[in-house]
Design a protein around this nucleic acid. Structure first.
Lengths: 165, 165
DNA sequence: TATTGTTATACTCTATAACTATA
DNA sequence: TATAGTTATAGAGTATAACAATA
């Protein structure tokens, strides 16, 4: 350990690792994580490209099915996209007859977004087929490994995704 | 456990969980994973949007820095994109003076892709700043948590990314 | 004046199909 | 005939800036 470096409890768990090595270790993890996200997103997309609606669109439909209704702004916030992007997504979903956009009962600036019957049907029937490829992959690993993935998923969400509300 | 269901060793680890519950558990993990990949990719992109080259482009440069040289087809395969996509990426990188495309010495059909001096400079200098945001996030969690992430990253790669070569 | 949503514009990412050149 | 790469075409995804309507 280099002289003059004060101990910093809380940053170092149980090893007396110098800071520089720790930073290098973090940098390497960042690179691996970045690449995994880049590549696995492409792979996942290629396996859902033949679906009726894209992953982005389905995510909005699924949220509406859970929440009942929402507004373009709230949906954009939840999905972490800019408002114009959500306008486009809702435009497509609307033209496909999957969502309705009606006047907001209380605030004339806002728009009330709801699922149509067809939209509700699609999201509920589609869930099973939707993640078929991903599920087939998860089916091939052990229950203990899936538990690890579950914990890592939650950890990654806490680490990367800023809290909403 | 439902009657008539035979035991299937290897599918069930240490619990006597019925298949249906296991399938539901897998489906839920698939949904969480899909959403994490969708959202975290967006967040990560928004934090690297101001960089000189996009994540896709940088990934190609970094691979070339490691491998020394490659071909469009091999790069497309490694990056999990279609050949025309790689043509476009290389076109941009070439116009930016970061890669050279020269005649392949042995096979006239192939193209030899190499880094220019500027390309090598960019990838080496850029690595530090590139993942600054991601590293800042990883810096905020414990060493034990990072170790979990490292293992989960490797597991996810094994599970989702088909082996190359 | 601030908020909500949309439109306009521009760029990246992505794929399939058709084409050229070489083996 | 098969392979490597590019071009052509089309669409989704993304953002910022400018605008309209309402609070």
């Amino acid at each position: 350990m280099s002289p003059g470096e004060p101990e910093r409890p809380g940053r170092q768990e149980h090893t007396a690792q110098p800071d520089q090595a720790e930073q290098a270790e973090i940098a390497e993890l960042a690179v691996e994580l970045q690449r995994l996200l880049l590549v696995s997103s492409r792979i996942l997309r290629s396996h859902t490209a033949s679906q009726a609606v894209s992953a982005s669109q389905f995510s909005v439909l699924a949220h509406l099915d859970r929440a009942g209704e929402s507004t373009p702004g709230a949906l954009a916030d939840f999905e972490h996209v800019s408002p114009p992007v959500m306008t486009r997504v809702l435009g497509r979903l609307g033209r496909a007859g999957l969502v309705d956009r009606t006047a907001h009962p209380e605030d004339g600036r806002q728009v009330r977004v709801t699922l149509t019957a067809a939209g509700r049907e699609l999201v509920r029937a589609g869930r099973a087929e939707r993640d078929a490829w991903l599920r087939s992959r998860l089916d091939g690993i052990s229950a203990a490994e899936r538990e690890s993935l579950r914990e890592a998923t939650a950890l990654l969400r806490r680490t990367l995704v800023p809290p909403r509300d």
